[in-house]
Write a protein that binds this DNA or RNA. Structure first.
Lengths: 159, 159
DNA sequence: TATTGACCTCAAGTTTAGTTGAGGTTCTAT
DNA sequence: ATAGAACCTCAACTAAACTTGAGGTCAATA
């Protein structure tokens, strides 16, 4: 039989299982996040993890950041850079989300540019090293020096 | 001393090193792609890889697909599904890129939705499990049955 | 009290996309 | 002919983000 309903013990600390159920992440993931310093726990007498309810908000923030494509290591850095590593406040959230939004915007812009190039190249199919924007993303030409590159490859059209 | 310039032997097959230089991927990556069935090679008498020039186009297509976020395994499947696994034609390219564009569009839409939610939630910071769209992406509610979920969590606002 | 579900640690495995290294061979210019 | 660049194979390593499993403990309930 499942664990007894605990709604009648208000504001208790949460067990891993409860946090897992409420946050939607696996217990093993909570362990993992702990080893990575993303979340913390207190321990019960019997060495079991106990969490304050604020961990749920923290996990929510972690998952949102992940959805935007931020690696866990970076998330950890930003979270631990907060004063005292304290409970997340609305102002922290504003700060973090502003930052992540900028990041996300950049990714969206890159993908959108790619889509537009793709759109204009469909049906063309040239994929010419010289002429096709898909094959020459702006940041590739400069890597070896555009001049040398273009000269080196001048006239190669049969690939 | 570096290898002699071979421009005077036109239309020769290419060595790995040449393909690497011209495509911008490492030799080890070309080996790797070969083990994954993404590209193929002929061998010289001495067992060295030799590539037709068409491999460059194939690699270009692979890299574009990767930029859109398609995993290599999927790229491999789509490339090998082409009739005879032959050289890529413009029509193949049109087909593939159309497909990938749709994929890319979906990813862009998801990220854009996330950004918009982020924008509207900055400064709010509620992250309420009930009310915040960031914490309840549409596809989460239905996972366990929205009804049960909402009832189970009703009244929990202190996280 | 005894069962059983939930929990613990630590090590190892998984996937994706490659890179690195050891030990040995081939190729090409001199 | 020979040096040295380029190539070969195969195994092992990397990184991120987890999951799985073994072996054992804790806690709530019948």
């Amino acid at each position: 039989m499942p664990e007894k309903e605990r709604a009648d013990l208000p504001r208790r600390e949460l067990t891993v299982g409860e946090v897992a159920a409420r946050s939607g992440v696996a217990v093993s993931t909570l362990h993992f996040y702990e080893t990575k310093g993303l979340i913390k726990s207190m321990r019960s007498r019997g060495n079991q993890r106990r969490y304050p309810r604020s961990v749920l908000r923290r996990i929510a923030v972690i998952k949102i950041a992940q959805r935007t494509g931020i690696p866990l290591a970076d998330i950890q850095k930003e979270l631990s850079a907060l004063p005292n590593d304290r409970q997340l406040l609305a102002s922290d959230w504003a700060h973090l989300s502003e930052h992540w939004k900028a990041d996300l915007n950049e990714r969206i812009n890159k993908l959108t540019a790619l889509r537009d190039q793709l759109t204009s190249c469909i049906g063309c199919g040239c994929l010419s090293m010289r002429d096709c924007p898909l094959r020459n993303p702006y940041d590739t030409l400069s890597e070896k020096g555009a001049g040398a590159y273009l000269i080196e490859h001048a006239g190669e059209e049969l690939d």
